[in-house]
Simulated assay, not measured.
Amino acid sequence: MKRQKRDPLQRALSRGYQAGITGRSKEKCPYQSLNARSHWLGGWRQAIADKSVIA
Protein backbone atom coordinates (compact mmCIF):
# COMPACT_ATOMS: atom_id res chain seq x y z
CA MET A 1 0.00 0.00 0.00
CA LYS A 2 1.42 3.36 -1.02
CA ARG A 3 1.79 6.09 1.52
CA GLN A 4 0.67 9.56 0.57
CA LYS A 5 3.17 12.36 0.75
CA ARG A 6 2.46 14.94 3.38
CA ASP A 7 1.26 18.33 2.31
CA PRO A 8 4.34 20.55 1.79
CA LEU A 9 2.68 23.47 3.58
CA GLN A 10 1.86 21.28 6.57
CA ARG A 11 5.49 20.15 6.60
CA ALA A 12 6.64 23.80 6.54
CA LEU A 13 4.37 24.56 9.49
CA SER A 14 5.70 21.58 11.43
CA ARG A 15 9.32 22.46 10.72
CA GLY A 16 8.70 26.05 11.76
CA TYR A 17 7.18 24.85 15.01
CA GLN A 18 10.21 22.64 15.70
CA ALA A 19 12.53 25.55 14.96
CA GLY A 20 10.64 27.78 17.38
CA ILE A 21 10.65 25.19 20.16
CA THR A 22 14.40 24.71 19.82
CA GLY A 23 14.98 28.48 19.95
CA ARG A 24 16.04 29.17 16.38
CA SER A 25 15.62 32.69 15.05
CA LYS A 26 12.83 33.42 12.57
CA GLU A 27 15.44 34.84 10.21
CA LYS A 28 16.69 31.25 9.73
CA CYS A 29 13.59 30.30 7.70
CA PRO A 30 14.78 27.97 4.91
CA TYR A 31 11.83 28.62 2.57
CA GLN A 32 11.90 31.14 -0.26
CA SER A 33 8.34 30.87 -1.60
CA LEU A 34 5.93 33.23 0.10
CA ASN A 35 3.29 30.60 0.85
CA ALA A 36 5.67 28.08 2.44
CA ARG A 37 7.51 30.84 4.28
CA SER A 38 4.29 32.14 5.81
CA HIS A 39 3.38 28.64 7.02
CA TRP A 40 6.87 28.17 8.50
CA LEU A 41 6.59 31.50 10.31
CA GLY A 42 3.11 30.58 11.54
CA GLY A 43 4.50 27.41 13.10
CA TRP A 44 7.42 29.36 14.56
CA ARG A 45 5.05 31.92 16.13
CA GLN A 46 2.87 29.16 17.59
CA ALA A 47 5.93 27.50 19.15
CA ILE A 48 7.08 30.79 20.69
CA ALA A 49 3.59 31.31 22.12
CA ASP A 50 3.53 27.76 23.49
CA LYS A 51 6.95 28.21 25.05
CA SER A 52 5.86 31.40 26.82
CA VAL A 53 2.80 29.66 28.28
CA ILE A 54 4.92 26.80 29.61
CA ALA A 55 7.67 29.03 31.02
Rank of each mutant, 00 (worst) to 15 (best):
K28N: 09
S52E: 15
Q18C: 05
D7G: 02
P30W: 11
S33L: 15
L9A: 05
P8G: 01
R3G: 06
V53W: 10
W40T: 08
K2H: 05
L13C: 03
R45N: 11
R24P: 06
Q18P: 03
S52N: 05
Q4Y: 08
P8R: 07
I48C: 04
S14K: 14
I48H: 09
K51W: 01
I21S: 11
S33K: 13
L34R: 15
P30G: 08
R45S: 13
Y31F: 15
R11N: 06
K5R: 11
G23D: 07
G43K: 06
A12K: 00
G43D: 06
R45H: 04
D7P: 00
K2T: 14
K26C: 07
R24E: 14
G43H: 02
L41D: 08
G43Y: 03
K2S: 15
R11W: 15
W40P: 02
L34G: 14
D7Y: 06
R37A: 05
I48V: 10
W44K: 09
I54Q: 09
A19P: 04
G43F: 04
M1S: 13
Y31H: 11
I54K: 13
R37V: 04
R15F: 07
D7S: 02
K2L: 11
G23T: 03
V53P: 00
K5N: 03
G23S: 02
A19S: 14
Q32F: 13
E27G: 13
C29H: 11
I21E: 09
Q4I: 05
A47L: 01
R37F: 00
A55Q: 08
R45K: 12
G20M: 09
A36Y: 07
D50Q: 11
D50H: 02
D7V: 04
L9Q: 06
H39P: 00
K51S: 13
H39R: 14
R45L: 03
H39K: 10
D7W: 07
R15P: 00
